[in-house]
């Protein structure tokens, strides 16, 4: 069976005054129906560029997107656009401030000419009810809503076209902790009801762990580690993944499964990425070969793949630490 979403060797470039940034430098991913792939990485690693290219907001330089095995035009128009929708980080910036809540949810339906006016009104009402926005709020404007309510409206808008795939770009980062739980529960419920596929981008590792079936770690435009959430969590193999988990408060578990990795410097200039392994300039474990050869994603079993010349050294000796 072909995967619900397949990304093949996607490359996204941004032209800047000082040169071309390869924001996404050849990323391939496969997501099954009903699956969540969590995508983590620092800002500037290309995760949002990748997300926007998948939704069709950026035009990728090369690469293919297949939905259920069918190739799609990256600049999807018309019916194709319905399959992939996006939930944005900042619901305030992504909602038209002059449209009411009801109009905002109706808009995608009218753009795609779905149903007549009465049907659209009914659909919008049902969607808003589903995401927990009471009828009293349907005529309000975005600025009259709280952050959590705005994000619910953003989710209702994304769901309006009954997509198969939803790209969630930091959907709870701008929300308060008590409201984050509400929105995460809502997203997971919707996923179960409609067998949605999520690409879930977040810098919050605990949130990613909570929602993801699989986790992918991105660094300077490439995937450095990907695998089942439990595998990546209990035995992070790439030094960068280990560094992320160490700083996120899991130092003990990292120490138990191999070398500790403390990052001292910051992301190198993306205009001129390092040769060989892109992480080597920040990697305390880098050796000669890392500057020469680009490491390929190597399978360590159970679909846990890592792009590191040295990962084998600790992959074999360490036993997964169960958190």
């Amino acid at each position: 069976m072909s995967p619900r979403l397949q990304i093949d060797e996607m490359v996204v470039e941004h032209r800047t005054k000082r040169g071309v940034v390869h924001a996404v430098a050849g990323v391939s991913l496969e997501l099954a129906a009903g699956e969540t792939l969590g995508l983590v990485g620092e800002s500037g690693c290309g995760k949002s560029s990748l997300a926007r290219a998948i939704v069709g907001l950026n035009t990728p330089k090369s690469g293919a997107i297949r939905i259920d095995g069918r190739a799609t035009d990256p600049r999807r128009r018309g019916a194709q656009a319905r399959d992939i929708q996006m939930v944005f980080q900042d619901p305030y910036g992504s909602l038209n401030p002059r449209m009411s809540v009801r109009e905002l949810v109706e808009e995608p339906l009218s753009v795609h000419r779905l149903g007549n006016r009465a049907e659209r009104v009914a659909t919008a009402k049902a969607l808003l009810e589903r995401v927990g926005i009471s009828a009293a709020m349907h005529d309000r404007l975005p600025h009259q809503l709280s952050g959590g309510q705005r994000q619910r409206v953003g989710i209702a808008r994304a769901m309006a076209l009954e997509p198969k795939i939803v790209i969630c770009d930091e959907p709870v980062s701008a929300l308060d902790v008590s409201v984050q739980a509400q929105v995460l529960n809502l997203l997971l419920d919707l996923q179960k009801e409609q067998e949605l596929t999520f690409l879930f981008i977040s810098h919050d590792l605990e949130v990613v762990r909570y929602v993801s079936h699989r986790i992918a770690v991105m660094y300077l435009g490439v995937i450095v580690e990907i695998g089942p959430a439990e595998g990546v969590w209990s035995l992070p193999l790439h030094p960068y993944t280990r560094a992320l988990m160490q700083t996120a408060g899991d130092a003990e578990r990292v120490a138990a499964t191999g070398p500790m990795v403390t990052l001292s410097s910051e992301l190198p200039n993306p205009l001129n990425p390092p040769s060989g392994c892109r992480f080597r300039t920040r990697c305390p474990l880098a050796i000669e070969v890392c500057a020469r050869d680009v490491p390929a994603l190597e399978d360590f079993g159970d679909g846990h793949r890592v792009a590191c010349h040295r990962a084998g050294e600790w992959a074999s000796t360490a036993t997964p630490a169960h958190a």
């Binding site: 529960n185 605990e206 959430a229």
Partner: peptide, 19 residues
């Protein structure tokens, strides 16, 4: 806050209703 569960555990976060 998530408490170290995986999605396959089916654990539901406890919400604080309202704002």
């Amino acid at each position: 806050r998530p408490h170290g569960s995986f999605v396959t555990d089916g654990h539901r976060l406890r919400e604080i209703a309202g704002t």
